[in-house]
Measured scan of single mutants.
Amino acid sequence: TETVELHKLKLAELKQECLARGLETKGIKQDLIHRLQAYLEEHAE
C-alpha cells in the first residue's frame, strides 16, 4: 500500500486497515494515515 492509496481510503477503511495490523484506531483521518505509513515503512519487505 502506497501513500497515495492511503489518502484515497475512507476513514472507516483506514480504521479497518489499522485494526488488521493491531494499530490504534482513534484520531482523525490524517492520524490513521500517518500511523499506517509508519507501520508499513517499518514492515516493508
Rank of each mutant, 00 (worst) to 15 (best):
Y39F: 04
H43E: 13
K29Q: 10
T1P: 07
A38W: 06
E42C: 12
H34N: 12
G27F: 01
I33R: 06
E2I: 11
G27A: 01
L14F: 01
H34T: 14
R35F: 02
Q37W: 05
I33H: 03
H7R: 11
H43T: 10
E13T: 08
K26I: 09
E42R: 12
K26N: 13
R21T: 01
K8Q: 07
H7Y: 05
L36A: 02
G27I: 01
H34F: 11
G22K: 02
E41Q: 15
R21M: 04
K15M: 07
E24V: 06
H43V: 07
L23P: 00
L36T: 03
L19S: 10
L19Y: 07
E24K: 06
E5C: 11
A12E: 14
A44Q: 14
E17Q: 02
K15V: 06
E2V: 09
G27P: 00
A20T: 10
R35N: 04
K29S: 05
L40F: 12
C18Q: 00
A20G: 05
K29A: 08
G22C: 03
L40G: 12
E5R: 09
C18A: 02
L40S: 14
H7A: 12
E5A: 10
T1K: 15
E42P: 09
I28V: 15
E42T: 13
T3V: 08
D31F: 01
K15Q: 14
L6V: 07
A44H: 15
R21W: 02
E2T: 13
T3W: 06
R21L: 08
E45G: 12
L23E: 00
H34E: 15
A38F: 08
E45I: 06
E2H: 09
L14K: 00
A20C: 06
K8C: 06
K26V: 13
L36S: 03
T25R: 01
L9G: 01
E5G: 09
L11G: 02
R35E: 05
Q37N: 06
T3G: 11
G27L: 00
A20K: 12
L19I: 09
R21Y: 06
E42V: 12
E42Q: 15
L36W: 01
A38C: 09
T3D: 07
E41T: 12
Y39K: 10
L11R: 05
H7T: 13
E41F: 03
A12Q: 09
L9N: 01
Q16K: 15
K10Q: 13
L14G: 00
K26L: 07
E42L: 10
E42M: 13
L23V: 02
L40I: 15
G27T: 01
K26A: 14
Q16T: 07
H34L: 12
L19G: 08
Q37Y: 05
R35A: 04
E41Y: 14
H34I: 07
E2G: 12
T25P: 10
E17V: 02
K26M: 08
A12Y: 06
T3Q: 13
E24R: 05
E5Y: 04
I33C: 09
H43I: 05
K15T: 07
H43D: 09
K26H: 14
R21C: 04
I28G: 15
T25W: 06
L9H: 03
Y39H: 13
L11Y: 14
Q30L: 11
L40T: 12
I28W: 07
Y39D: 07
C18H: 01
A12K: 08
K8W: 03
L19N: 08
L9Q: 03
K29W: 02
K29L: 02
H7L: 08
A44V: 10
L36H: 02
L23A: 00
A38V: 10
V4R: 12
L14E: 00
Q37M: 06
D31T: 06
E13S: 06
E41A: 12
V4Q: 13
L19D: 04
L36P: 05
Y39M: 04
L32R: 01
L19H: 11
R35H: 05
T25S: 09
E2P: 09
L19R: 09
E2A: 11
I33E: 09
L36M: 09
I33P: 02
K15I: 08
A44P: 14
R21Q: 04
G22V: 00
E42K: 12
Q37S: 12
G27H: 01
I28Y: 12
I33Y: 05
I28D: 15
E45S: 04
K10N: 13
E13Y: 04
E42W: 04
